[in-house]
Design a protein around this nucleic acid. Structure first.
Lengths: 147, 147
DNA sequence: TATTGTTATACTCTATAACTATA
DNA sequence: TATAGTTATAGAGTATAACAATA
């Protein structure tokens, strides 16, 4: 027996903006994860590939900082991408401290595939929201919350 | 010297719904944390207090499940609230397996204070968004994303 | 002295398996 | 056999301190 089974009062908790935001974010992350499962790419890894693809030759610290990742933690992430042969560290001429990051051909290829999945994923999200205007509204509101 | 300092191309990454959602959620969580710092209450702990306050006498498993917390992890959380004298586990008459959860007077007092902070916090969020209609729009869009 | 990458470490959150006591 | 709570443990994600090499 499972008890009387009365529903719990959750309204007050669930009406909180932060709570709803968190739940939505978790849901989207789950959807993202299952979309990118076949490529074995996590959200942060995808972001890193996109960023390196758009900005080849940048230092680890620069890429990490833009994404809000501590440079100490970025090492593990980029190590994994490197060992999968997706990215490459090259010496910066004139600054032997820094590593310049590049995509390998394999990395560029995987990124292309990932972009296709991402486009489809984004399209599905826009559909769920009710169209491009609704999406713009959402992004605008999210932006405002960050201030 | 800090290098030539050209800006990185981040548009493509930052236009992604999931990415923006994550950033907004992190920002709100940070704001929430600093708001509740004085009470030493984390988001999940606040939710638990609210839920117990609204549903006194419920089992641990019920409270945990509603919040999406595994019952194994809920033990640590409720232990902390218990040891702070905010909540109380009582034996359920007729079911000696279960713990019924209640707020102590201290817990109820802290919750009252927390609600005041929460109300002020929510009001500030609504202001940032541009009014109650904007808030409703945001909650509606977040809801749609979860489907 | 500051920058860059790295290692080590710790803390939170989350997830699973297995145990106990009860039903 | 199922339920409720608990313990132990492991994996992510994130945070800080400290070190080596370089500037």
């Amino acid at each position: 027996m499972t008890g009387s089974g009365d529903a719990l009062r959750v309204e007050e908790t669930t009406s909180i903006i932060g709570y709803r935001l968190r739940r939505a974010q978790l849901a989207i992350f789950q959807q993202f994860l299952s979309t990118f499962e076949t490529l074995n790419l996590r959200p942060a890894e995808f972001s890193v590939l996109v960023l390196i693809g758009n900005n080849p030759g940048r230092k680890q610290t620069e890429i990490a900082e833009v994404l809000g990742i501590k440079r100490a933690n970025f090492v593990t992430l980029i190590n994994r991408l490197d060992s999968r042969g997706l990215t490459e560290r090259r010496v910066v001429p004139g600054n032997r401290r820094a590593n310049a990051l590049y995509l390998t051909p394999a990395g560029a290829g995987l990124l292309e595939e990932a972009r296709r999945l991402q486009d489809a994923f984004e399209t599905r999200c826009v559909e769920k929201l009710g169209g491009p205007e609704a999406r713009d509204t959402l992004l605008d509101l999210l932006e405002k919350l960050c201030r």
